[in-house]
Computed example of a mutant assay.
Amino acid sequence: MTKALLTCLSHTPLKGNVDPLPEVVDEVARLVAQLGEEVVAFDPELIFLFAPDHYNGFFLDAMPQLCIGTAAESVGDYSTSAGPLPVPRDIAEACAAHVVGRDIDLAVSYRMQVDHGFAQPLEELTGSLARYPVIPLFINSVAPPVISFRRARQFGEAVGEFARQLDKRVLFIGSGGLSHNPPVPQMATAAPEVAERLIAGRNPTAEARAARQQRTIDAATQFAAGTSPLHPLNPRWDEDFMANLACQDWAALDGYGNDAITEAAGASAHEVKTWVAANAAMNAATGGHYEARARYYRAIPEWIAGFAALTGVSRPD
């Protein structure tokens, strides 16, 4: 039986830029430190990291729904590090072949660019981008049309099946969510110059990246002050979603509809598909022999996020 660990964690680019009360910052820091200690104690031989992008590495010139990186580099947005991720190319290629063999339409990138959605959990949970070998698994979460929860589950299952064959200690990470609706532009309503950035915005100048990040910081300041038109956070939806994951209610999760997700929890709540995929991978890798539990939840307006953590450990037969 594969020995596996599951860690699902919200990410936010607003840490250190627009922060809640110090006691909340400290509370989250203690949580992340505890999760990091658990990862280091587990000492994974390989990480499968499911994460979204925020128009930093993937664009509308050709937006895949799902993509695996056989090589990847962090763009270093916000306060994350720039540089390469230690992707074992041969394992990534074999994983891609297995997933496609399960009738999942998967893109493959030999030059994947990733942003804080990937880099932040790696740095927070392991201390750096490069401590452990990692397979980066992208799920489109911001550019309609987006896949369903059911498809995210099927993707995760295929990855977990592959991981089960490796005879390694594997860590599955789901990065993102929960309810939130930051000011990510949409193609349907974007001005021409913004639409062009959504189509072909790779490798912006330092000045352009800084201006974009400042717009997000300004939006978070307004949201925290209660003067923003952004979609409100939805703690009830967040907690119900985590409960469904913790009890592995796959039928309930498959029943979530994309329009209902957006309406209830905001356009960027689709990032929770990374949690669905990571849990499904854990389930497949362990043959269903794992226990998941919600570890933390707090609605944090300053970070425009229902901020949460859920973990799982494999158990003996």
Results as ranks from 00 to 15, higher is better:
residue 3 K to D: 12
residue 11 H to S: 04
residue 15 K to D: 04
residue 15 K to G: 03
residue 22 P to I: 11
residue 25 V to Y: 08
residue 26 D to C: 06
residue 28 V to M: 04
residue 30 R to F: 13
residue 32 V to G: 00
residue 32 V to K: 06
residue 33 A to K: 11
residue 39 V to C: 01
residue 40 V to Y: 13
residue 46 L to W: 08
residue 46 L to H: 06
residue 56 N to S: 10
residue 61 D to L: 08
residue 64 P to W: 14
residue 69 G to R: 03
residue 73 E to F: 12
residue 82 A to T: 05
residue 85 L to T: 02
residue 85 L to N: 05
residue 92 A to R: 02
residue 97 A to L: 11
residue 97 A to V: 01
residue 98 H to S: 13
residue 101 G to D: 05
residue 102 R to M: 10
residue 102 R to A: 13
residue 110 Y to H: 14
residue 114 V to Y: 08
residue 115 D to E: 00
residue 124 E to S: 11
residue 132 Y to G: 03
residue 134 V to L: 04
residue 136 P to M: 03
residue 137 L to T: 02
residue 140 N to H: 13
residue 145 P to S: 11
residue 149 F to P: 00
residue 153 R to E: 12
residue 158 A to Y: 11
residue 166 L to G: 00
residue 168 K to A: 05
residue 171 L to I: 04
residue 175 S to F: 10
residue 176 G to H: 11
residue 179 S to R: 05
residue 182 P to C: 14
residue 183 P to T: 10
residue 184 V to P: 00
residue 186 Q to V: 06
residue 189 T to L: 11
residue 191 A to R: 12
residue 193 E to L: 12
residue 194 V to G: 00
residue 194 V to W: 12
residue 195 A to C: 04
residue 197 R to D: 02
residue 206 A to E: 11
residue 213 Q to S: 09
residue 216 T to G: 15
residue 218 D to G: 00
residue 218 D to T: 02
residue 218 D to N: 08
residue 219 A to L: 10
residue 224 A to R: 07
residue 226 G to V: 06
residue 227 T to S: 14
residue 232 P to D: 15
residue 232 P to H: 14
residue 237 W to S: 02
residue 241 F to Q: 02
residue 243 A to I: 00
residue 246 A to V: 02
residue 248 Q to T: 05
residue 249 D to Q: 06
residue 258 N to S: 12
residue 261 I to M: 11
residue 265 A to F: 13
residue 271 E to H: 09
residue 273 K to H: 03
residue 274 T to R: 07
residue 275 W to Y: 12
residue 277 A to W: 06
residue 288 G to E: 06
residue 288 G to D: 03
residue 290 Y to Q: 14
residue 296 Y to M: 08
residue 296 Y to E: 06
residue 300 I to H: 02
residue 304 I to G: 04
residue 306 G to D: 05
residue 307 F to L: 11
residue 310 L to R: 07
residue 312 G to T: 06
residue 313 V to T: 15
